[in-house]
């Protein structure tokens, strides 16, 4: 489902070049639960941005569901992100002025889903993350764990091919971390493809497959 071949991303720093990603090759099948582990500055975020279609590789090929990503314009990429990727960020990245419900609804609005269907799907995913009671609250009125659950609801409401978590538990305490990881495990059991990026070995080990990244180079650890 995800097929990276010799993907590199180079940043110009001063007069030298820094390889944030150096000939990375990676294959992930549908239904897998993968974690990418590495220290900060290892190129994890770059990898996530490329897999999440937020950024384009300088060289190599990336096929997402068989679609070669580097051929698309920005607006087409936005469409692909909307349909195929669900993002869960470390800092939640909810829109402050919108209620939990409206935040979850937003990707469906961008997709052009009708109002009745939107409402039904939003209610369904909010129930799934256990926030039905909080649907009319603003993010600032919610706890970190609740905000992250809204973010997960927003990520799954479009039924994406891939749920992409960038340090999703990085800002949470251990109890809430446990709750959030439980939701990810459930989503995996229901057949979703999940990719978590983390620097926390413990979180990483909850996945069925662990990939290490260091200085832009990937290496797989078999469990």
């Amino acid at each position: 489902m995800i097929d990276l071949k010799n993907v590199s991303r180079v940043y110009q720093v001063g007069s030298g070049k820094v390889y944030a990603l150096n000939k990375a090759t990676l294959h992930i099948d549908a239904g897998e639960f993968v974690s990418i582990v590495g220290p900060s500055g290892s190129g994890k975020s770059t990898l996530m941005n490329i897999i999440g279609c937020l950024d384009i590789a300088d060289s190599g090929t990336y096929l997402l569901d068989g679609i070669p990503i580097e051929d698309y314009t920005e607006t087409e990429l936005a469409k692909i992100r909307n349909r195929k990727i669900g993002f869960v960020f470390q800092s939640f990245n909810l829109i402050d002025k919108l209620t939990a419900e409206e935040n979850v609804e937003l990707p469906l609005i961008y997709r052009g889903v009708g109002k009745a269907e939107r409402k039904a799907r939003v209610a369904e995913v909010l129930e799934r993350v256990g926030l039905t009671k909080w649907s009319h609250h603003l993010p600032t009125e919610l706890s970190g764990g609740q905000q992250q659950r809204v973010a997960i609801a927003r990520a799954i409401v479009t039924k994406p091919s891939l749920i992409l978590g960038d340090e999703p538990t990085g800002n949470l305490d251990s109890k809430t971390t446990g709750e959030i990881m439980e939701i990810f495990r459930e989503l995996h059991e229901q057949g979703n493809t999940i990719m978590l990026i983390t620097h926390d070995q413990e979180i990483a080990e909850q996945a069925s497959r662990i990939i290490h990244i260091r200085d832009g180079v990937l290496s797989e650890v078999s469990i």
């Binding site: 937020l54 607006t75 936005a78 992100r81 829109i95 990707p107």
Partner: peptide, 11 residues
């Protein structure tokens, strides 16, 4: 955020 969840330039 809006772009990440699928808002294109036009939107």
């Amino acid at each position: 955020i809006r772009k990440a969840i699928g808002a294109g330039r036009g939107v």
